[in-house]
Simulated scan of single mutants.
Amino acid sequence: MSQVNMIAVLLLLMVAVLPAIAESQCKVSEFRVQRNFDIARFQGRWFIHKKFTQSPLLQDSFTNREHIYTKGAGEDLAALSFGRCHDGSCQFEHGKLKQPSPTGSNAAKLGYQPSSPSDPVLKYWVIDTDYESYALIYGCNQIKQSTGKCMKAYSWILERTRQSSLSQEIRRRINRKINGLCLKPNDFEVVSQTGERCRQCDPSTWTVQPNFDLDRYLGLWHEMVFKPRVVFPRELAFNDYLNVYTILPNGTIAVRIVRSDPALDDKCFITDDRQTWERTDEPGKFIFFDSPDRTVFTGDDYFVIETDYTGISFVLGCVKEPDTPDGECVRIRGSVWSRKPYFTSTEFIRLKVLFDQYCLDEQEYYITTHNKICPREPNGKEQVEVCVLYDKPDVCLRGL
Results as ranks from 00 to 15, higher is better:
residue 121 V to T: 11
residue 142 Q to I: 04
residue 173 R to V: 04
residue 43 Q to D: 07
residue 280 T to W: 02
residue 210 P to L: 09
residue 382 E to I: 02
residue 396 C to E: 02
residue 309 Y to M: 00
residue 240 D to G: 02
residue 234 R to G: 12
residue 152 K to S: 12
residue 103 T to L: 14
residue 104 G to V: 01
residue 196 E to A: 13
residue 366 Y to Q: 10
residue 89 S to P: 02
residue 229 R to H: 13
residue 270 I to P: 01
residue 377 E to L: 14
residue 209 Q to S: 10
residue 128 D to Y: 01
residue 146 S to T: 10
residue 286 F to K: 00
residue 89 S to V: 12
residue 367 I to N: 14
residue 378 P to I: 09
residue 327 G to T: 08
residue 56 P to C: 08
residue 158 L to S: 00
residue 123 K to A: 14
residue 93 E to Q: 13
residue 141 N to R: 07
residue 385 E to R: 09
residue 251 G to T: 07
residue 392 K to E: 15
residue 171 R to L: 13
residue 342 Y to Q: 11
residue 272 D to G: 06
residue 278 E to K: 08
residue 232 F to Y: 08
residue 271 T to C: 05
residue 256 R to W: 05
residue 292 P to H: 14
residue 275 Q to E: 14
residue 155 S to I: 01
residue 148 G to P: 03
residue 27 K to Y: 03
residue 229 R to Y: 08
residue 283 P to R: 09
residue 159 E to N: 11
residue 138 Y to S: 03
residue 296 V to M: 13
residue 102 P to G: 05
residue 374 C to A: 05
residue 303 F to D: 15
residue 60 D to K: 02
residue 41 R to E: 05
residue 161 T to I: 02
residue 78 A to H: 10
residue 349 I to G: 14
residue 241 Y to W: 10
residue 358 Y to F: 08
residue 355 F to G: 01
residue 251 G to I: 03
residue 22 A to T: 09
residue 215 D to G: 05
residue 158 L to Q: 00
residue 76 D to E: 10
residue 76 D to W: 01
residue 277 W to P: 00
residue 146 S to R: 12
residue 34 Q to T: 11
residue 384 V to E: 11
residue 47 F to L: 08
residue 387 C to H: 01
residue 315 V to P: 05
residue 9 V to F: 13
residue 131 Y to M: 08
residue 65 R to Q: 08
residue 175 N to D: 15
residue 199 R to K: 10
residue 2 S to Q: 06
residue 380 G to F: 04
residue 126 V to F: 02
residue 75 E to Y: 09
residue 354 L to T: 04
residue 350 R to W: 03
residue 27 K to E: 06
residue 1 M to A: 13
residue 293 D to T: 11
residue 44 G to W: 00
residue 90 C to P: 00
residue 318 C to M: 05
residue 47 F to V: 11
residue 39 I to F: 06
residue 48 I to Y: 09
residue 4 V to N: 08
residue 180 G to Q: 04
residue 370 H to G: 04
residue 367 I to G: 05
residue 212 F to I: 02
residue 32 R to N: 08
residue 343 F to P: 00
residue 231 V to G: 02
residue 387 C to M: 07
residue 17 V to R: 04
residue 240 D to Q: 01
residue 263 A to T: 12
residue 350 R to D: 12
residue 61 S to R: 14
residue 72 G to I: 01
residue 31 F to Y: 12
residue 69 Y to C: 07
residue 344 T to K: 08
residue 263 A to Y: 10
residue 252 T to F: 06
residue 208 V to H: 02
residue 336 V to N: 01
residue 2 S to C: 07
residue 305 I to N: 01
residue 6 M to Q: 15
residue 386 V to G: 05
residue 69 Y to K: 03
residue 107 A to R: 10
residue 159 E to L: 05
